[in-house]
């Protein structure tokens, strides 16, 4: 009996040892996989924080509405809210935002609930010179004909916004829009010929970049970058809700 059981016992012991070894191997393997997964997660979380640190789009240190030399302000100084919109007359999203927010912002400004400053600059210079030319005409009109006429031109420029792929309105077309808004044609042409507009646009663009603005439209509500919205329509209605 005992003689017979010995070899069976040996085989069982061998099998048990093998089993134990396999289990150890499996444990080691699971630990390794867990360790690698953990290491990868650490890398991803670290990378995320690096990425967040590199994203400076919310670090905009801009003068409050009514406080810049390069903008058009509507609404009273003592309004409880302060909105600044950095924009480019060619940027399609600026056109969408303008379309969705103009009437409400104008109404709220008239009611004294908000002061809004529109700050056009030349962001899309790589596409062509329309951004610069349109902003230059706007600048001269603002300087010579005042904010009311400049606001009308601002609105007209967006209503007649060309596609980013052209064709682009000529200077004469832009002057025609300005005259439609109520600008004095002779004064405007004189200002443009003297290069006043382009100088203003250059300075406005530098001021925007210095403030940390890196895209358009950049909307600031009470000094903070406002991006709450899936679409420009959402953004506009959320902005209006916050103010009104």
């Amino acid at each position: 009996m005992s003689k017979k059981s010995r070899p069976v016992g040996r085989a069982e012991r061998a099998a048990a040892a093998m089993h134990e070894q396999q289990q150890q191997e499996r444990r080691r393997r699971n630990l390794m996989v867990g360790g690698v997964v953990l290491a990868l997660l650490v890398i991803i979380v670290g990378g995320y924080f690096l990425s967040r640190a590199l994203d400076t789009s919310k670090d905009v240190q801009a003068p409050a509405a009514g406080g810049s030399k390069y903008g058009l302000t509507i609404g009273p100084d003592d309004a409880p809210h302060d909105v600044v919109i950095y924009e480019d007359f060619l940027c399609p999203y600026c056109g969408q935002l303008e379309d969705a927010s103009r009437d409400d912002l104008a109404r709220l400004a008239a009611d004294g609930k908000v002061q809004v400053e529109y700050r056009p600059f030349n962001l899309l210079s790589t596409i062509g010179d329309y951004s610069e030319r349109s902003a230059a005409v706007f600048a001269v009109v603002l300087d010579k004909s005042g904010p009311d006429v400049a606001k009308k031109l601002h609105d007209l420029l967006y209503e007649n916004q060309p596609s980013e792929s052209g064709p682009f309105p000529s200077d004469d077309d832009l002057i025609k829009l300005a005259v439609e808004a109520g600008a004095d044609e002779a004064e405007l042409k004189k200002g443009l010929a003297a290069g006043d507009g382009k100088a203003w646009v250059g300075d406005a663009t530098q001021a925007a970049l210095d403030a940390g603005v890196r895209g358009t439209p950049t909307v600031l509500l009470d000094g903070k970058v406002f991006q709450d919205g899936r679409t420009m329509d959402d953004l506009a209605s959320n902005l209006v809700d916050k103010i009104g």
Partner: peptide, 12 residues
């Protein structure tokens, strides 16, 4: 968060 995380996840 998605925009910031995406490049990191892609590289990993």
């Amino acid at each position: 968060p998605v925009g910031q995380l995406l490049p990191v996840v892609e590289i990993v």
